[in-house]
């Protein structure tokens, strides 16, 4: 009947492909993505790239400056720290901790946050109120303070620090999921899906989640940088990774006394954190624009 005109000139794009085209137009976000990919690759292949083991000491070259300064030593591109360990190798191995922890933390927060948030959004009433007030309380305590309290209870270790940061980041995911579920659940397509017999968790995973994934992905990207920062902060305070683990925050804290005599030992880990956080924030902002249906071309 009305299908006389075929749609030849329209290529069948999945919604994700369409978002990718929109993201690709954003140069800065793509730069962030590339930097992040490079960081991840170098973290994965750290044993191949790094010239030394992270904890290998070279007693004869303590606090050797990086290659651009006078007195630099061959073999130590970014210099060495106070115990004669190669900075580049430590940073590369440190990236494994920071990036992996960032991912793990975001994943834990995302999964639990979505589950709790969806529960609050779909089951209204007392469940919702209890969950929301609990999240409000968590948000009322400064993030780092809350993390410190949790670590203090669990004991200082990298694993516990990661748990603490996951809990700190949780309320954002819960609130976003709940708000998105509530705004979507009464829309016609969800009602239609319910009439098609989709119920409960199936309704959440098959129908709701694909449609509310945009704000969650954006939040996940931004949380990734928060997670890295918080882990570094806990490491700096001595509550996260313990020396000699080459985690970036721990690197910062163990070498802070050399900030005047050997500034590279402090600035380089700081710079690594800065670049990672900046790259993921840029990507997050780009994703926000690409995934937001209101900003359509």
């Amino acid at each position: 009947m009305s299908n006389a005109t075929s749609v030849e000139d329209v290529d069948v794009l999945t919604p994700w492909q369409e978002n990718w085209y929109k993201l690709r137009a954003n140069k800065i976000a793509i730069a962030g993505l590339i930097v992040l990919m490079m960081l991840i690759t170098s973290a994965i292949f750290a044993p191949l790239i790094a010239s030394h083991a992270p904890n290998e000491q070279f007693i004869d070259s303590l606090l050797a400056p990086p290659f651009w300064s006078e007195g630099s030593k061959a073999g130590f591109v970014l210099g060495t720290d106070d115990l004669g360990r190669d900075m580049l190798s430590r940073l590369l191995y440190g990236a494994r901790y920071s990036l992996f922890l960032g991912f793990a933390i975001v994943l834990i927060s995302l999964v639990t946050g979505v589950a709790i948030g969806a529960l609050a959004g779909m089951k209204q009433g007392i469940t919702e109120t209890v969950i929301l007030r609990l999240m409000d309380i968590m948000l009322a305590i400064p993030a780092i303070l809350l993390a410190i309290v949790i670590v203090a209870i669990l004991g200082a270790s990298l694993f516990n620090a990661a748990m603490a940061v996951s809990i700190v980041l949780l309320p954002h995911f819960v609130r976003i999921t709940r708000a998105a579920v509530i705004s979507e659940i009464n829309k016609d397509y969800v009602l239609a899906s319910r009439l098609d017999g989709t119920r409960g968790w199936k309704l959440l995973f098959r129908t709701l989640l694909p449609n509310i994934s945009a704000p969650l992905i954006v939040q996940a990207t931004l949380s990734f940088s928060n997670a890295i920062l918080d882990i570094a902060a806990l490491g700096f305070l001595g509550l996260g990774a313990q020396p000699p683990t080459p985690e970036w925050g721990t690197l910062l804290s163990t070498s802070r006394e050399f900030i005047e005599t050997a500034p590279w030992t402090v600035t380089l880990p700081g710079l690594a954190i800065l670049i990672t956080v900046l790259a993921s924030n840029l990507l997050g902002d780009g994703l926000r624009d690409a995934l937001d249906p209101r900003i359509d071309q």
């Binding site: 397509y189 009602l191 899906s193 098609d196 098959r206 694909p210």
Partner: peptide, 19 residues
């Protein structure tokens, strides 16, 4: 508004049959 934007027509029509 009543058709799930993230599903292909085939999936939309298959959903009630599956359920």
């Amino acid at each position: 508004a009543s058709l799930d934007p993230r599903k292909r027509v085939y999936q939309l029509l298959e959903q009630p049959l599956l359920n």
